[in-house]
Simulated scan of single mutants.
Amino acid sequence: MLRLIVLLLLLANALFYAWSQGYLLAWGTGPTQQSEPQRLAQQVRPQSVQVLPAEELRRLESQFAQDPRPPECLASPMLAEAEVGSLRTVLDSFPPGTWSLEQAVEPARWLVYMGPYPGVEQVARKRAELRQLGVSFEALPNPALEPGLSLGSHATEAAANQQLAALAERGVRTARVALERPEQRGQRLLLPAVDDTLRPRLEELRGVLSTKPLRPCR
């Protein structure tokens, strides 16, 4: 009996091996063939793929890191006249044509404003009332208007009045439109093509532009 069981196991293993290798496909049985000829047809020059040694890979990475970065345009925010004077002293040593100072205008901005209040307790009470009405508020961008609340900042007085009317319909009664900031005029620094030669010299400008860093041109 034991010999029969062993023979049956050997026969089963032999049949499974023949099936898995596809030897029984002629009799209509065998594993599903996994083949994706379309992927092979889409390969582009597979013979050109090569595995690089670690040393060669480091050499190529170093080469790419040393490749020059493309020039970029940088500009400062608007500068006051006193800042421009200090800036010119530094810029006089820069190569000619690498910088310019151009006129800049920042338009006035308007707030939907609540305040000023006698103290922080009144501000906290007003915040609670606004939360109950579902009205959002934010910190004041102009410290001269403290203590108070901003319900929105706008580029035009008309837009601020439009928001004020909408808030009145929601139950906000004591807000008003206030001037957040009058129109400001000044100059801004423009560096139209900062390349790898000029980039190290930007450090010389940071002392003068400490609170007004250079940003990509818009």
Results as ranks from 00 to 15, higher is better:
Leu140Tyr: 03
Leu15Asn: 09
Thr32Asn: 11
Met1Asp: 04
Pro70Gln: 14
Gln162Val: 03
Phe137Cys: 09
Arg181Met: 08
Leu10Lys: 07
Arg45Asp: 14
Gln66Ile: 04
Pro216Arg: 10
Val120Leu: 14
Val51Gly: 00
Leu57Ile: 07
Trp99Gln: 01
Leu87Val: 10
Pro68Ile: 02
Leu15Trp: 12
Pro77Gln: 01
Ile5His: 09
Leu149Trp: 00
Leu202Glu: 06
Asp196Gln: 10
Lys126Leu: 02
Ala159Glu: 09
Pro141Leu: 13
Ser153Ile: 11
Pro77Asn: 00
Leu214Thr: 04
Ala75His: 09
Ala168Cys: 02
Tyr17Gly: 13
Glu129Val: 09
Pro77Ala: 01
Pro118Asn: 07
Pro213Val: 07
Pro192Phe: 00
Leu167Val: 02
Cys73Leu: 00
Leu60Ser: 05
Ala18Glu: 03
Pro71Phe: 07
Ala65Asp: 13
Gly152Ala: 02
Val135Asn: 08
Glu204Leu: 14
Thr29Cys: 13
Gly207Lys: 07
Phe137Met: 10
Glu61Val: 05
Ala80Val: 03
Val51Pro: 01
Pro96Cys: 04
Leu179Tyr: 03
Glu55His: 11
Ser20Glu: 12
Pro71Asn: 12
Thr89Arg: 14
Ser62Thr: 10
Gly152Lys: 00
Arg185Glu: 06
Thr211Arg: 15
Pro141Ser: 12
Gly28Glu: 06
Pro147Arg: 05
Arg199Asn: 06
Gly97Glu: 03
Glu56Trp: 11
Glu129Tyr: 11
Arg88Leu: 15
Ala144Leu: 14
Pro213Arg: 08
Phe94Ser: 08
Pro70Ala: 15
Ala75Trp: 05
Ser210Phe: 11
Ser20Gly: 08
Ala41Ser: 12
Asp67Val: 14
Arg206Lys: 15
Thr197Val: 12
Ala108Tyr: 00
